[in-house]
């Protein structure tokens, strides 16, 4: 398999930067979370698989379901893995010089805050998805050798921006509470569900693929996005629960009434 340079170069650059960060961490701390490294590498591999594998050929030959798998890998799976592969300490050598000066100036801080807005993130995530699936846009972009890779890049970027607020691997100026995160996930899922409903329920083929293939694409979309949203919703909920339990008021209550599952008594 020969990897297309337009895929290889960015993936190699991100891989090299990440390797340097890992080496730096190993020098300074003496240990590295290899599981995290593995997740990041897996994320890069997912991008390569999405863009330079038989899947890409299938998508290019008009399979809308294959195209959808590609988009889900690029817009959701890879961003989640890449973000899970980061943490604040690891990224500090990059984030400190890049964002440090901006955070210290009030104008820069305002700009960063605007760019870090969850409303913007979910808006771009849904907006790019909806724009792509406007039938005329889909056909034009899919046929263009320039716009198509740009579209894929946009999917990765908006995916990173969207999932950043759920996973928040790095310090941020805007932080969502667990309830806000659940609402945020719900809005993102509804955005995807609208597209899936059009793909599954439309009375005719809209994108040049067969109607069956179009419906399958809608099912693929839900099959990826729904468990992801549910899984991370569960994660958000479970992370919030211990914090609630450990608050001073709940601690005193628990001493008087030790928490035991009601159904376990």
């Amino acid at each position: 398999m020969v990897i297309d340079p337009t895929t290889l170069v960015p993936v190699a650059v991100y891989g090299c930067v990440y390797t340097l960060l890992v080496l730096q961490r190993k020098r300074s701390r003496g240990r590295v979370d290899w599981a995290r490294v593995g997740v990041y590498v897996f994320g890069l591999a997912v991008i390569v698989v999405a863009l330079d594998s038989p899947l890409d050929k299938l998508a290019d030959h008009g399979s809308m379901a294959a195209h959808m798998v590609q988009h889900e890998l690029l817009g959701n799976i890879a961003p989640v893995l890449l973000l899970l592969g980061l943490d604040a300490g690891l990224a500090r050598p990059v984030t400190r010089p890049v964002f440090g000066p901006a955070v210290r100036s009030s104008r820069g801080r305002r700009l960063l805050k605007a760019a870090n807005s969850p409303v913007l993130a979910v808006g771009l995530y849904i907006g790019v998805m909806w724009l792509w699936y406007v039938p005329s846009v889909y056909r034009t972009v899919s046929a263009s050798s320039v716009l198509h890779p740009l579209g894929h890049t946009l999917f990765v970027l908006t995916g990173l921006l969207f999932w950043f607020h759920v996973l928040r691997p790095l310090p941020a100026l805007v932080t969502l509470t667990p309830r806000q995160k659940l609402l945020y996930l719900l809005v993102g899922t509804i955005g995807g569900a609208m597209v899936a409903a059009v793909l599954i329920g439309a009375p005719q083929a809209l994108y040049g693929a067969s109607l069956q293939n179009q419906r399958l694409a809608g099912a693929v979309m839900m099959a990826v996005e729904m468990p992801l949203a549910l899984g991370f919703g569960l994660w958000v909920f479970l992370r919030a629960a211990p914090r609630e339990r450990l608050s001073p008021s709940s601690q005193s209550t628990e001493r008087e009434h030790p928490a035991r599952p009601e159904f376990a008594r």
Binding site: L182, L185, L186, T189, I190, A193, M194, A196, A197, V198, I200, G201, A202, P203, M222, M226, A229, L230, G233, L234, F237, L238, P261
Partner: peptide, 29 residues
């Protein structure tokens, strides 16, 4: 009328998260 399934399906799929999330949490419990 031909697009009614899209409206109906959109509502059902969009509600999926709401119907599945509490069950998911109960299942985790």
């Amino acid at each position: 009328p031909a697009w009614t399934p899209v409206a109906a399906g959109g509502a059902l799929l969009a509600a999926g998260f709401a119907v599945m999330a509490p069950c998911e949490l109960q299942m985790a419990t």
